[in-house]
Computed example of a mutant assay.
Amino acid sequence: MKTAISIGSAYYDGSNWEDLVELVKLADRIGVEYAWSAEAWGMDAVSPLAYLAPLTKTIRLGTGIMQTSARTPATAAMTSLALARLTNNRFVLGLGVSGPQVVEGLHGASFEKPLGRLREYINIVRQGISGERIQNDGPQYVLPRPGGEGKALRLGMPPNPSIPIYLATLGPKMLELTGELADGWVGTSFIPEASDDVISHLRIGAERAGRSLADLDLQVNATIEVGDDVEALIKKYKKSAAFTLGAMGSPETNFYNAAFSRAGWEPMAKRVQTLWVSGDKQAAVEAVDDDFVLATQMIGNESMVLERLRATAAAGITTIRIVPLGRSVREQQAHLEHVRSLIQTL
């Protein structure tokens, strides 16, 4: 199993950037395979990778994720070609549709028909990185724009069709699209014991395209913390669980809540969301089930963490994506090295 790290966050403001750089440089030295830069309404996903490119040698640098609503597909293709050049072909294009609160609130774009929009977006990006003339008949993107002076253009950089495209998806149809069109999956909200709800849809998409699930790199995020006080760890991570179930999206559209509901936790997930939205955040935290925390986080003593890692690998996941923990960069580096050593035992 491979290791990846996440850098930044949805709302990362650039603080302690120098420490983050040192962390990525260490990850590169010890053989971590991927570093993914986040993007929502904080630092963008692209600029950090351009900065890190000359400071690293082997680690793959990916956008985790680049919001499709924030850039035209042609711009995403140009950016991908440029970053592939700057990283000596270590760049991975991670794409995602985000959610209506960000898409409509921050970018002023419509969130309607995200599945069809993402399919067209990927097709246009592949045209761009393959050196083809960029053209699309819609219905989401019409290129060139009709009725004007535009013409189908090729991008000026040398083609590089081998740039990998990963998708961050959660819903069944989106997972099928990932299996059909992507090189990898940047997954979240994954529970090994309920993995068939995810893996089956990825497999359907892959087989639709005439390939197998083994052709995809399947990555999931994981919070990994080793400690003997399991009760304290459960209490600690109930807060983030309640935030995910209650606040990561609107009351009408919370993709994470929906994913965990499909995984068998619907009554609790809805109860936590209702309490959070009503303003009673403490009650929402208390409503999170202990077993849910243990199912969704890799916490506890070392044997417990290793058991969760083995279960995740057995479910078909090929790469674990972590956020190194610690108050200082030295603590984060120690955590990363420890987690990396655990993963390498699998």
Rank of each mutant, 00 (worst) to 15 (best):
K2G: 07
T3N: 10
A4C: 12
G8W: 08
A10M: 09
A10Y: 09
Y11V: 09
Y11D: 15
Y11I: 11
D13C: 09
G14F: 01
E18S: 12
V21G: 03
V24Y: 10
L26E: 10
L26P: 04
D28W: 02
W36V: 12
E39M: 10
A40M: 11
W41M: 13
M43P: 00
A45C: 11
A53V: 06
L55H: 06
T58F: 05
M66N: 06
T68L: 10
S69P: 03
A70Q: 06
R71I: 01
T72I: 00
T72S: 15
P73V: 05
P73G: 13
T75P: 03
T79G: 05
L81I: 08
T87D: 02
N88G: 14
V92F: 08
G94F: 03
Q101L: 07
Q101M: 09
V102K: 06
G105M: 04
H107G: 03
A109Y: 02
A109T: 06
S110H: 11
E112K: 11
P114D: 14
L115F: 11
L115W: 13
G116L: 08
R117K: 15
Y121W: 07
R126D: 06
I129Q: 12
E132K: 15
I134C: 02
G150V: 00
K151R: 14
L153Q: 14
R154F: 07
L155N: 15
L155V: 07
P161M: 14
I163F: 09
P164Y: 11
Y166W: 13
L167E: 15
P172H: 05
L175R: 07
E176P: 05
T178Q: 04
L181D: 08
G184Y: 05
V186F: 14
G187L: 02
S189F: 02
F190H: 01
P192C: 04
E193M: 00
D197Q: 12
D197T: 03
D197N: 10
I199C: 02
I199T: 04
S200W: 04
A206F: 12
A209L: 12
A209G: 11
R211G: 14
S212W: 12
L213E: 11
A214F: 13
D215H: 08
D217N: 14
L218K: 13
V220K: 06
E225T: 02
V226F: 03
V226I: 14
V226S: 13
V230Y: 07
I234K: 01
K238A: 05
F243G: 05
F243D: 03
L245H: 04
G246F: 12
G246N: 07
G246K: 10
A247E: 05
T253Q: 11
N254Y: 06
N257G: 12
A258F: 09
G264W: 01
W265I: 00
W265F: 13
V272Q: 09
T274G: 15
S278V: 12
K281D: 03
K281Y: 12
Q282H: 01
A287F: 00
V288S: 03
D291P: 00
V293N: 04
L294T: 15
M298C: 14
L306P: 00
R308V: 06
L309I: 14
A311Y: 11
G316H: 11
G316T: 13
I317Y: 04
T319I: 01
R321E: 05
R321I: 10
V323K: 02
G326D: 07
S328T: 15
H335L: 07
H335T: 02
L336S: 02
H338V: 00
L342W: 10
L346E: 01
